[in-house]
């Protein structure tokens, strides 16, 4: 293969393009979750009383703690970006490590929550749905599972990327800020999606 042609004339141009590409990508993610939010909004409009009743069956406090954890991880991501902009590669790596650790914490708590729901018979999967008696309840829990599940998939990808980046920067004296900034943006999006999922699902009680 012939070596590829760089489309850029300088680094600033490249940085601007990377940032813009990431923002557009985040736009597509918002539209993707938007379809799910539309489905949840419609379900609530059509079955307001049931929606509220089933929201009460979720573990409010686990969700609340997870919100705290994820928001804190976003703070770490922001600090990593700050460090990278200052050129402090190793500090950035440390903050990124903390970000990933808190992300893992979120996933662990979420897994616990799913397990509890499975035992309570609330999870619409084989063997875990014993307590799901009426259709809207099942629908609500389905929407809950799909949207939090899709969110967890995004978070898992985020953790991998953040960890990889932290590994690369672990001994770096300096750092190119762009990859950290872009990863940070993605992390914040994951956070923001949760910040909407939490009230729509848990706080509708």
């Amino acid at each position: 293969m012939t070596e590829s042609v760089s489309p850029y004339t300088d680094r600033r141009q490249r940085h601007a393009a990377d940032m813009m590409g990431m923002y557009l990508f985040l736009g597509t993610e918002i539209m993707l979750f938007g379809g799910l939010f539309a489905a949840m909004a419609l379900t609530r409009l059509q079955h307001p009383a049931e929606y509220v009743a089933h929201s009460r069956e979720l573990h409010l406090w686990i969700g609340a703690w997870n919100t705290v954890i994820l928001l804190t991880s976003s703070l770490f991501a922001a600090l990593a970006v700050h460090a990278a902009r200052e050129g402090a590669g190793r500090a950035a790596a440390r903050w990124l490590g903390a970000t990933a650790a808190f992300g893992l914490g979120f996933l662990a708590l979420k897994a616990t929550e799913y397990t509890l729901e499975f035992r309570e018979g609330l999870l619409p999967v084989t063997g875990g749905d014993g307590a799901l008696s009426e259709p809207v309840q099942r629908l609500f829990m389905h929407l809950y599972l799909v949207s939090t599940g899709l969110h967890a998939v995004h978070l898992t990808i985020g953790i991998c990327v953040v960890t990889g980046l932290a590994w690369r920067l672990r001994r770096a004296e300096s750092a190119r800020a762009i990859p950290v900034e872009i990863t940070g943006l993605y992390w914040h999006l994951i956070d923001v999606v949760w910040v909407f999922l939490y009230p729509v699902l848990y706080l509708a009680r």
Partner: peptide
């Protein structure tokens, strides 16, 4: 695949 009923009126969907 899983019987998610968001488009199925019998399951509370639309």
């Amino acid at each position: 695949l899983f019987g998610l009923g968001v488009f199925n009126p019998a399951l509370g969907g639309d």
